[in-house]
């Protein structure tokens, strides 16, 4: 897909998510809020990053402190929106929700997209393992918690969200693990030869080294 089409996709997805009926439906249950709406808002940022010119991507990533800075911004921002209190506030107050709609694409999805290649195989592995452990930890917490953590959501809903997180963690792990070995051998190779993302090696452009 070309860049304008990707940017258009990002904008369309964002507007769709921001439609009042979509917002109301997605935020009506904890499962949809945490595991559908929030990931899709992050996806908006990822798409946006993919739709930017290489020059803009480099400038933005440099300003954000390189791949490590981008990853740090994404980690803190996503952690904030995992706080049960932040979810409750987003449901109760439309302005808090507006902040959520702005920060998840711009401070999680976009920096992840910009930092993804430069991160290298080790950095990407860190992101995946971090995601899996976070899903497992929060999921287990929600299943085992004796109290309702969100005033806006039912106890059953909390347990359901917890189980869904554990299942997603399993799926993400399986997919990541499979990709390491069978799916995309070039990915592993790319990290191994020291890809810094700023000056892509032929391999990291997806071209064979020898023709």
């Amino acid at each position: 897909m070309n860049a304008p089409a990707v940017r258009f996709g990002a904008a369309a997805l964002f507007l769709l998510l921001a439609l009042p009926p979509a917002r109301a439906w997605l935020e009506a249950t904890m499962t949809r809020h945490m595991l559908v709406q929030i990931p899709l808002l992050v996806a908006v940022g990822v798409l946006l990053g993919g739709g930017l010119a290489a020059r803009v991507r480099r400038a933005l990533l440099t300003a954000a402190g390189g791949p490590l800075g981008g990853l740090t911004a994404a980690a803190f921002t996503s952690t904030y929106w995992m706080l049960p209190r932040a979810l409750d506030a987003a449901v109760a107050d439309v302005w808090v929700d507006a902040v959520k709609f702005a920060t998840l694409p711009l401070l999680v999805g976009l920096p992840l997209a910009l930092a993804w290649r430069p991160l290298g195989a080790v950095g990407r592995g860190f992101v995946w393992t971090n995601l899996i452990s976070m899903l497992l930890f929060v999921g287990w917490l929600y299943v085992a918690a004796p109290v309702r953590v969100c005033n806006s959501y039912l106890t059953d809903d909390q347990a359901q969200a917890g189980w869904a997180m554990i299942q997603i963690a399993g799926l993400v792990f399986a997919a990541w693990f499979a990709a390491l070995f069978v799916g995309r051998p070039r990915d592993a190779q790319r990290g191994a030869i020291g890809d810094n993302g700023l000056r892509p090696t032929p391999a990291s452009r997806g071209q064979p080294l020898f023709r």
Binding site: A64, G65, G66, L68, G69, F76, N196
Partner: peptide, 15 residues
């Protein structure tokens, strides 16, 4: 992945 001094400072500020 190479990390320069400026990147490290920015990352620390973000953290």
């Amino acid at each position: 992945m190479r990390i320069g001094g400026r990147d490290l400072a920015t990352t620390a500020a973000i953290a």
